[in-house]
């Protein structure tokens, strides 16, 4: 699964967690904070994504990415490790 596919999963999870964003265009360049996703919602999005791609990593290892694309890259790297 490449980073773009992981980003699509993240974006789908963002839309289901915050239905208010259903109609809003979301790209790899957007950050969840800028989209108005709060910290608990962000954790929910990431956990749901981890489950969808079959990856188990502690949440503390997933701080740092500044946007959806960087998060997808990080998850992609972890899934290959």
């Amino acid at each position: 699964m490449d980073s773009d596919r992981i980003a699509e999963i993240i974006i789908a999870e963002i839309r289901s967690t915050v239905p208010e964003l259903e109609a809003q265009p979301i790209t790899r360049a957007d950050s969840m904070a800028d989209l108005g996703v709060d910290s608990i919602e962000r954790s929910e999005v990431i956990l749901a994504t981890l489950e969808a791609i079959g990856l188990k990593v502690p949440m503390v290892q997933l701080h740092g990415p500044r946007n959806i694309g960087e998060l997808a890259d990080l998850l992609h790297a972890k899934s290959k490790a």
Binding site: I40, S43, E44, L47, E51
Partner: peptide, 9 residues
């Protein structure tokens, strides 16, 4: 069977 994915909420 998948407690690691329990929603934080």
């Amino acid at each position: 069977e998948r407690l690691d994915f329990l929603p934080p909420r």
